[in-house]
Write a protein that binds this DNA or RNA. Structure first.
Lengths: 248, 248
DNA sequence: CGTTTGGTTGATGGTTATCAAGTCTGGTGG
DNA sequence: CCACCAGACTTGATAACCATCAACCAAACG
């Protein structure tokens, strides 16, 4: 069990990489100052569990760097990922004491944390935080519903293509890469994590990735480095024929 | 195409059956009065489409009576239900113009509606509405994530049992029936709607319901009237072994 | 009555899970 | 430097589960 948590070097909110996307995004200077005094950083190593489902939660916070997963498990071990936490995503639910899910860092990760009580109090006093949290929660709900379609109705091949498309899209917007250019990214997830995401076995994930590669939908260098030569083609494979009818 | 929409008789917020559960639950008297002036009722017949995905949404609102579904479809017709709207549930997303899902009334239904613009303005001015909406959205997100486990990892039999458990639980809390008593309810959904909920075919739904009946987990009178003699047994079948370890 | 809608049941095949080897890669220690 | 090892991944054989196609039933309805 790795239980070490180093407190990362403090950082000014002004320099924060997630300043304009996180729960604090709408805060005014004075509000930000109050948050600044409340906040503390925590670091987690890849593989380390941040919170166990059912545990008492003393803090809420935002992912600053790194990636984490939100998972639910049944007693017999079956596991379903229910959230993928990227930088700026929020962890914890104000007004709830016990964690509902397991949170696991899958890369090294830094979080910006607040003790729950003071954060809740501040939420009641400053509407800008609650407003932003509502917006983020609505976005997460949309993402969860999109995901439900993937889990309930898509084939294994479509599921893999959908996952690649999600990661590709995120990377494309992040790197400001134009469309039409081949998209290149590294898979942040192991085959097993992908299977937990998609409700498949890791063997099926492996087979379908191989199949998409064989069919030229994606190219692989090593196990994780992916090139998408034609994003439209990938979307077709994902069943997201979202060209929207450009032609009459 | 049934496109008639009768405007239901106006009703006072004080008598409203969803007064203390809907988005207006936390409003003070003066806030409620403002909402009262904004609101209007709309009625929908069973089977009628309330909103098509992609349509411009001129209103948001709450389900007052009846049930509706939120569904997503792929071009080839595959359909996944992503939400089940019960009385007090909210429809529409403030700040968004186009509907993201199909909303279909599955029983006769009455909604309490607000034109989107005035509602959004009021949300900005009165934090009580936004607070309640955040709470409701967080609950919906939890429900969606629970549902993702069902869709991704449960067998057909477990899916059916899970659905029965959800409906049974809702009915039990609603009717204040004690546990231990046999739970009795009517399925609000057709076999097809259940299949869209659970990511199955309607034939599989029918077969698994028959199987649960044969094994005595549920009793059926007619196609829709269900009796659950032993709720714990149902939870076991659902894979939700949530006895939580009452015994050392 | 014929028709429609919702539901059940049966036969069959396909997709994906399961069980089982085996490969590749990076890291560690001799 | 190389042997070894562990973890991540791939591939194959088989079988289970569920989808598909099809026939049929019952109630509601015009």
């Amino acid at each position: 069990m790795l239980n070490e948590q180093t407190t990362a070097a403090p950082r000014d909110c002004g320099d924060c990489p997630i300043r304009h996307r996180a729960v604090c995004a709408r805060c005014e200077a004075d509000e930000l100052k109050r948050l600044d005094e409340l906040k503390y950083y925590r670091s987690f190593e890849a593989g380390q569990t941040v919170i166990w489902s059912g545990d008492h939660m003393e803090f809420v916070g935002s992912v600053v760097t790194g990636i984490a997963t939100l998972t639910q498990t049944m007693e017999d071990g079956r596991t379903q990922m229910v959230g993928l936490l990227l930088p700026s995503d929020f962890v914890g639910r104000p007004g709830r004491d016990a964690a509902a899910y397991n949170v696991v860092a899958i890369t090294d990760m830094v979080m910006c944390c607040f003790r729950k009580k003071p954060f809740e109090q501040m939420m009641n006093e400053t509407p800008h935080i609650a407003q932003r949290l509502l917006e983020m929660t609505l976005d997460e709900l949309d993402a969860a519903r999109e995901w439900m379609l993937v889990l309930g109705r898509k084939t294994a091949r479509e599921k893999i293509a959908s996952l690649m498309a999600i990661i590709a899209r995120r990377d494309a917007t992040l790197n400001l890469a134009g469309i039409d250019k081949p998209i290149v990214f590294d898979l942040p997830l192991t085959r097993e994590a992908m299977s937990d995401y998609l409700g498949l076995t890791l063997e099926t994930v492996s087979r379908q990735i191989s199949a998409l590669k064989k069919d030229g939908v994606i190219h692989l260098q090593g196990k994780r480095h992916v090139t998408v030569p034609d994003f439209e083609r990938l979307l077709e494979e994902a069943g997201d024929d979202s060209d929207g009818g450009m032609l009459a």
